[in-house]
C-alpha cells in the first residue's frame, strides 16, 4: 500500500501547535531568555551565558532549599503511599458505607490549596488553634511559628491530611478491579492475609501505585501555596522549599536572571524524574506481555 503524500494535512495541526506555542513554549523560552541575560535597568540586557546557572548551582541557599525539598518529598511519600494503601484496604468494598467513605476521602482534595494552608495555620496556632493549644496543654512545647521542628511536623501533617486521599482513591480503584475469584482461589490455596496482599492485591495495584507515586512526587516537588500560607517558608528558612525560594528570588529580590535559571534547573529535575518513572513503567509492561 502506498501512502499519498499530502503535506497540506500539516495545516490541520496548526491550531494546536499555536496554542501550545502560546501557552507553553513561548513562556518557557522567555524564561530561558531571562536566565541567560542580566537586566539591571528595564530595556538594558547583558548576555551572561551560563553564569546564572553556575551561580545558582554553586549557591548554598539553593543547596539548602533543594535538600529541604528532597527531605520533604521523601518524608511525605513514605508516609502517604503506605498509609493510603492501608486506608484503601480497610475501606468497605461496597454498599452505603463505601460511598460515604469515598465522599469523606474526596473532601480534602476539593478544598482550595490556600484554604488548606489557612485551615492548618489557625488549627495549629498555639494560643487558639485546637491542635496547637491541645499539644501545649498536653505538655508538649509546640509552636510552629518559631520552632523549625514544629513547623516541619505541621507542614508534613498538613500535606498528609491533604493528599493521602489521592493515594487512597487510586489504590481503592485498583483493589476494586480485582475479581472475587482471586480471593476465593487464595482461600482455597490456604493463603494467609499477608500472602493475599503480597501476591494478589499488591501486584494488581502496582500500576495505580506507580501513578500515585509519580503524582505525589511531582505535586510535592512544586509545593508552594500551603506552606506559604502556613509558615511563609519560616521560621527563618526552615520550610523554604524550592518554589518558595524561587518566588523569593524572583518577586522578593527581583533577581530575574537567577530566578529564571532556578526555574529551568528545577524544571529539568522534574522532567528527569518523570522520564525515569515513565521508562520504568513502560519497561515493566513490555516485560509482562
Amino acid at each position: 500500500m502506498t501512502k499519498t503524500e499530502n503535506n497540506r494535512a500539516w495545516f490541520l495541526v496548526l491550531p494546536v501547535l499555536l496554542l501550545v506555542a502560546m501557552n507553553a513554549i513561548l513562556p518557557l523560552m522567555t524564561v530561558v531568555n531571562y536566565s541567560l541575560q542580566e537586566s539591571f535597568i528595564a530595556g538594558f540586557w547583558d548576555w551572561v551565558g551560563t553564569r546564572h546557572y553556575q551561580d545558582v548551582l554553586a549557591s548554598e541557599r539553593f543547596h539548602a532549599a533543594l535538600i529541604r525539598q528532597f527531605a520533604f518529598t521523601f518524608i511525605i511519600l513514605i508516609i502517604e503511599v503506605p498509609l493510603g494503601v492501608a486506608v484503601a484496604l480497610a475501606m468497605p468494598k461496597k454498599g452505603a458505607w463505601a460511598s460515604l467513605c469515598l465522599v469523606l476521602m474526596a473532601l480534602p482534595l476539593l478544598i482550595p490549596w490556600n484554604v488548606v494552608g489557612a485551615i492548618w495555620n489557625i488549627f495549629a496556632l498555639p494560643e487558639i488553634g485546637l491542635l496547637g493549644w491541645g499539644l501545649n496543654a498536653l505538655g508538649f512545647d509546640y509552636n510552629y511559628t518559631n520552632q523549625p521542628i514544629s513547623a516541619w511536623i505541621t507542614v508534613i501533617l498538613m500535606d498528609v491530611w491533604h493528599w493521602t486521599s489521592l493515594v487512597v482513591l487510586l489504590a481503592y480503584a485498583g483493589l476494586q478491579s480485582i475479581d472475587e475469584a482471586y480471593y476465593r482461589a487464595a482461600k482455597i490455596d490456604g493463603a494467609s492475609r499477608w500472602a493475599v496482599f503480597r501476591y494478589i492485591q499488591l501486584p494488581k495495584m502496582k500500576t495505580v501505585l506507580i501513578i500515585a507515586f509519580l503524582l505525589r512526587f511531582i505535586d510535592s516537588f512544586m509545593i508552594y501555596t500551603e506552606p506559604f500560607v502556613l509558615t511563609g517558608g519560616g521560621p527563618g528558612n526552615a520550610t523554604t522549599f524550592l518554589s518558595i525560594d524561587l518566588v523569593k528570588a524572583a518577586v522578593g529580590e527581583f533577581n530575574l536572571g537567577i530566578a529564571a535559571a532556578m526555574s529551568i534547573i528545577y524544571f529539568l529535575m522534574t522532567l528527569l524524574v518523570c522520564w525515569l518513572f515513565f521508562t520504568l513503567m513502560t519497561k515493566d509492561k513490555e516485560g509482562q506481555a
Binding site: D179, A181, Y182, R184, A185, I188, Y199, I200, P203, K204, Q288
Partner: peptide
C-alpha cells in the same frame, strides 16, 4: 480445589 471461569494465577 476449584478452577474458575477466568484463569486465576498469581502474576508475580
Amino acid at each position: 480445589a476449584q478452577v474458575f471461569q477466568f484463569p486465576v494465577v498469581y502474576d508475580t
